[in-house]
Amino acid sequence: MSVLITHKGETNFKIDPTQFTIWIFLVSVVMLFAAFTSGYIVRKAQGDWVNFELPPIFMYSCLTVVLSSATMVAAQVAQKRAHKGQMQLALFASLLIGLAFIYMQFVGWNELMDMGIYFVGNPSGSFLFVISGLHAVHFASGILAILVSLLRSFLLDKNEIQSQKIGAVAIYWHFVGALWIYLYLFLSNA
């Protein structure tokens, strides 16, 4: 059931309404992580803080997010040119690289635990697990969104593919990628 309310031409949305809402949503996600990272700084300044080196795998996971953003851009270009197959391939690649990212995060967490850094213990470790874990949750929701877009694209024929809204998914995907790069730089330097 759809509710038909707003007539086209009666609004002055300059960008797609879903994309617009996503942008505002991202502002609130920024605030969430800003709260965690500033909490990190405040807590660290109070002492009783165990310093440790981040496992290098977290740096490699930064590279995967860059790569997956590139494949996402490729998907959008293919969509613009109405190359359905190429678009699906690029979406699938983003999905796979995204899953690889999550796997790498798990490996990183395991390495941390091997180093004796646990979720429960000194707040430096707790913060790391909370921040990277919550980021992974956001990232996983991005993977889900790509999966939905990919499955939907199979229902559309070649001419309809250009009207599929993958723009909002792409914005979110680039955002969660960039967020991890920020968080990595923050956690390895702060």
């Binding site: 505002i24 502002v27 609130s28 605030m31």
Partner: peptide, 10 residues
């Protein structure tokens, strides 16, 4: 939008 996420973090 700016402040409720911070309460969520808390």
């Amino acid at each position: 939008t700016l402040s409720f996420p911070v309460l969520l973090s808390a």
